[in-house]
């Protein structure tokens, strides 16, 4: 064959070699078809561990009661017993080391998530005592009258 045929062929072969070499260096060793086969499991295996190592922010109410036993007992005896501590007190992270104190959400907006009266006959919402936030003591915080750990006014 003539040289003008070989030359571009060498260029193409060279490009293919370069691309394959780049791929060899760039693609990690653990990349490939894993447990779910090529269709659903073609991935970098170490990414699973990366997701497992993602830092958790929320602990659990049992984590809180380890130190704040009195508080978890008082709320545990009230109608708010089922609400996890961190819903109002914020995610614990590594409290008490970091952060040293948690910010408590005492806003009306938090309370009316459940206690704003809606007509929802096919859900549990109707079983919760509800108010119209625009009529019921608008402008003041709920916690001015109601103790969140024992919200019933009759018990106070």
């Amino acid at each position: 064959m003539k040289r003008h045929v070989w030359r571009p062929l060498f260029v193409v072969v060279g490009m293919v070699v370069v691309i394959l070499l780049f791929r060899l260096l760039y693609v990690p060793d653990d990349f490939g078809s894993q447990d779910r086969g090529y269709t659903f499991g073609y991935h970098r295996l170490s990414n699973e561990q990366e997701w497992k190592d993602y830092p958790a922010k929320y602990q659990d109410s049992s984590y809180c009661s380890g130190c704040h036993e009195d508080k978890s007992e008082s709320v545990g005896a009230s109608g708010h017993a089922m609400i996890p501590c961190e819903n109002c007190h914020g995610a614990a992270f590594n409290h008490p080391e970091d952060p040293e104190t948690l910010t408590i959400d005492r806003s009306r907006e938090l309370c009316i998530r459940c206690h704003s009266e809606l007509y929802m006959p096919s859900s549990g919402r109707n079983d919760i005592p509800g108010i119209d936030p625009s009529q019921h003591n608008a402008g003041i915080e709920c916690s001015d009258c109601h103790n969140p750990h024992n919200p019933s006014l009759e018990d106070m």
Partner: peptide, 19 residues
């Protein structure tokens, strides 16, 4: 369990914070 959901949205807030 859709019967139990009251639409408080604490799940959404917790998810956004956690992730």
């Amino acid at each position: 369990n859709t019967h139990n959901c009251v639409g408080c949205g604490f799940c959404v807030k917790a998810c956004k914070t956690e992730n």
